[in-house]
Write a protein that binds this DNA or RNA. Structure first.
Lengths: 150, 150
DNA sequence: ACTGAAAGACTACCAGT
DNA sequence: ACTGGTAGTCTTTCAGT
């Protein structure tokens, strides 16, 4: 599917405020509200837009500790298997494989350090996991949309 | 400010679909639409909800390469300074300080590996930066809301 | 792209605790 | 006083032309 400049403008507007009305977005990109809706529907259907979500302050909801955990496995582990095993952890926010030494990196959000410790024990208890290395986030400097605006 | 179970339910609903109507959210948590709107306004005003954003597939918009960059500085650098310097990079998605060796970790999204290389050179050119260590993301296993649902 | 019907948002006001 | 519900009005959305 091809994404043109108007589509990119719509995506930028929705990244800034996912609850903006179609009329507001239309005013920004020079389109009528129905035309915007059609494009948004198309972007969602094609998968370019995966969804719309609330950006939450974890601390305000009692989740004060965040960490990145590098997980090492013995032998070869498939991405599918990693997704299954690590995705089963409710505290896991995101996971990915990297070009470096660890087999996977995991971002976890926990209520406190004690809770983090408990999660780490659960990870180390997973089959074939040989070790973890954890970096606790001291402060989140900034956090913005995953795709730079046009 | 105190956040009760109904607030947590509203946040969960908005994390799942930030464009849900107040009536839909109300049906889920057992409240009328105006009552939901009042709570959402309060959650936004208090900062518990930072905003609403579209979740985008970077690859579909031509941003195919993602990496985590550990940045080392000479001497002591304040978080304010880090936010300023690293936040000035358009390709920077997020940055944070950690308990380990690097002074800051940076998540960057680029069009391709060549673009990433160019960003790394810009980072190494920042004042007092002594070095970087980069891990390219091979595959994103999963990505979910930053706060586990109730 | 325009129009009409349906749905949603928002404000004001009322009731119960 | 605080929290939620109801009603009325205005805007937005969406399926027809």
């Amino acid at each position: 599917m091809d994404v043109d400049d108007i589509d990119r403008g719509i995506v930028t507007a929705l990244q800034r405020d996912a609850r903006a009305t179609f009329a507001e977005i239309g005013a920004e990109v020079g389109l009528s509200a129905p035309a915007v809706k059609r494009r948004v529907d198309r972007l969602v259907a094609s998968g370019a837009i995966r969804g719309f979500t609330a950006v939450v302050d974890p601390a305000a909801l009692g989740w004060s500790t965040e960490a990145y955990v590098e997980v090492s496995y013995s032998g070869v582990v498939s991405p599918r298997r990693l997704t299954q095993d690590l995705g089963a952890l409710p505290e896991a926010v995101s996971a990915w494989t990297v070009s470096g030494a660890p087999d996977a990196v995991l971002q976890v959000q926990t209520r406190d350090v004690r809770h983090l410790e408990e999660v780490l024990q659960r990870i180390r208890g997973l089959p074939d996991v040989t070790g973890t290395q954890t970096e606790i986030v001291l402060s989140r400097l900034f956090q913005r949309a995953a795709v730079p605006p046009v």
